[in-house]
Design a protein around this nucleic acid. Sequence first.
DNA 1: TATGAATGAGTCTTCATTCAT
DNA 2: GATGAATGAAGACTCATTCAT
Lengths: 202, 202, 202, 202
Amino acid sequence: MAQTTDPATNPVTNSRRAELLAIAARLFAEKGFKNTTVRDIADAAGILSGSLYHHFDSKESMVDEILRTFQEELFGQYDEILAGDLDPRAKLERAVVVSFEAIDKHRDEVAIFQNEAAHLLTFDRFAYLADRNQQSREVWLTLLRNGVDAGVLRDDLDLELTYRFIRDTVWVAVSWYRPGGRRTHTEIARQYLSILLEGIRS
Amino acid sequence: MAQTTDPATNPVTNSRRAELLAIAARLFAEKGFKNTTVRDIADAAGILSGSLYHHFDSKESMVDEILRTFQEELFGQYDEILAGDLDPRAKLERAVVVSFEAIDKHRDEVAIFQNEAAHLLTFDRFAYLADRNQQSREVWLTLLRNGVDAGVLRDDLDLELTYRFIRDTVWVAVSWYRPGGRRTHTEIARQYLSILLEGIRS
Amino acid sequence: MAQTTDPATNPVTNSRRAELLAIAARLFAEKGFKNTTVRDIADAAGILSGSLYHHFDSKESMVDEILRTFQEELFGQYDEILAGDLDPRAKLERAVVVSFEAIDKHRDEVAIFQNEAAHLLTFDRFAYLADRNQQSREVWLTLLRNGVDAGVLRDDLDLELTYRFIRDTVWVAVSWYRPGGRRTHTEIARQYLSILLEGIRS
Amino acid sequence: MAQTTDPATNPVTNSRRAELLAIAARLFAEKGFKNTTVRDIADAAGILSGSLYHHFDSKESMVDEILRTFQEELFGQYDEILAGDLDPRAKLERAVVVSFEAIDKHRDEVAIFQNEAAHLLTFDRFAYLADRNQQSREVWLTLLRNGVDAGVLRDDLDLELTYRFIRDTVWVAVSWYRPGGRRTHTEIARQYLSILLEGIRS
DNA sequence: TATGAATGAGTCTTCATTCAT
DNA sequence: GATGAATGAAGACTCATTCAT
């Protein structure tokens, strides 16, 4: 492991890494992490399974990199929303829209997080996923609380539950949303917001 | 051959089977089907792993029996609601309440279905799960359509999407609901209905 | 095992034993000893596998009893032929006929001996099978030698090889002979003798 | 997927496969297919049992390849005889000689076929063995019929039975023939032919 | 005699991973 | 970067056998 350049950041090797990670992500999302073998990934990449270890330390480190990268991007967007100057209702809308966008642009990553996080969480290495869950909770609760404080959302809501309902509905959509399908992710976001906002406005 | 009673239905031997299935269900729900070894189940039951095969053909047949039994009961309840004489809105409420009840009474079974169905579905043996998914869709769409026809629900809803939002929000709750926790399943159902019905009423 | 009467000879329990042995023999002959499970036998007998152990010590002791009983009868017949006063050629004919009769009357036992002896032989318990093989060799060699000495058989034969050809052709017939089939065991014996005796007569 | 060479036909990797198959064949022939464990094979090859699966799909696929390869060669030879221009009697002699040659050169393969075919036949995968049996029957019956038609063989023979006698005597010889033993395979073939042809000539 | 539950040793197979070439 | 061979640990499943009831 006496590498002088970290393959994860070296732009030259990066393209192949990214390629392989995309293949792995697709399979993890489709069949589950445990149900995907290293050989499945290698086969799909047209190499032998042992060769994957020139690129990655382990199967675990593949999911790790997949999830980590995705979450950085996603939470970056949430932070922007929080820091922005939209009004509370618009911020909430934006958060929903951004989430559905993520489902569209990062289907595999979202699916993996959705299906595997609970189990991965039980290993030290993936403890950061729990932090991200916590962070997500804070984002949504803040958005909701701001809405209530501003008087645009019902003040009789159990915010904790409301947050969970929203989070669940949004993210589980990854299980049935098909890019290029009948409904665009924007339409789905709109339809959901039309129900949700009607249901929680003051 | 000369067996006069099928162990799967014989009430006497059934107790041990049921016990073992409950143990298996708990583990499948907690760690996932693939992540649960036959030895995990046997250990939890206090027997050797090979001894499980005195009761069941395979690990697969265990999930099979768990899911099948649960679904029969659940869909029995949905059928009762559909056949009952409540008004459309009350029927919808009842369906939501019954679902949260199932989450409370059959946490493990719901969790297994929620987490494993997509993958199990890819095997012939579990093709019936696809039928159940279809049946579920028909139940909810019927309830929603009746509500719209009766004029109690908004007529601008995309019913297909609405059904998915409801189904997802309800069932994914199994991932965080804790029996005996701060909120009862009835309270959660009420809170969700208060948002949902407000959001979709005409 | 403090039994006051040997179940193998007690006439009362004998019928059930014989029944079970016949069932076992059929299965051993059809599928092979190793490929037949104790459960296969029990299933065919309409009892549970554990119950077989009230009748027999082990699966091995079942084949043992099957083979032992059969061989006693068969070699009794050979001894009668050798001790009888037929002329050499008639004795040889009789030995062939008696062997095909055994194939007809004891299909399963012959098949088991034919297919399993080589392997069973490697265990101490079945060392007596080697003795029987030796005894068989002596019977046939004696018959052939007497024929040659009497001038009715070619004196240029390699008797050792001739014995093997005869033994093989006769016993392997068990693999295709079907009782009640197109040809009776007597017809088969006649046809074989017509070729053999023509081939080896002086 | 992106494999340019099939390991089963690639001459380079083939050597290791062939080595392992030879080891497996020896054991299958000696102890029987069922009595030979994958570990037995691996031990004999000096590797771990799991490593065998780098070369073969399963224990079954090993016998499959062993039998298939052998039968192709053998039936190739029979076809040559049938297509050749020897006289009927010489063709029959040649077929016997070729068969004893096979016993000498492919002891293990012949033994496996002789001992396991009946059982393997009961699995779809080995259905082709039944075809080969049928093909063998046609070869011998053709040879015999041609001999009768040409007037060199007795016309009172039951050809079906005669075929079986020949086939059985020839192939079962594998159970006692030892390469390098007192009698060469050619001597055995000669001795058998001297009896057989005398017995069936017109 | 038979049942039903269990044992314990073993069998085939899988799979992430390593490493010499 | 990749191959091909192998490791080693584990996993699902089998099966002869035991034994309390």
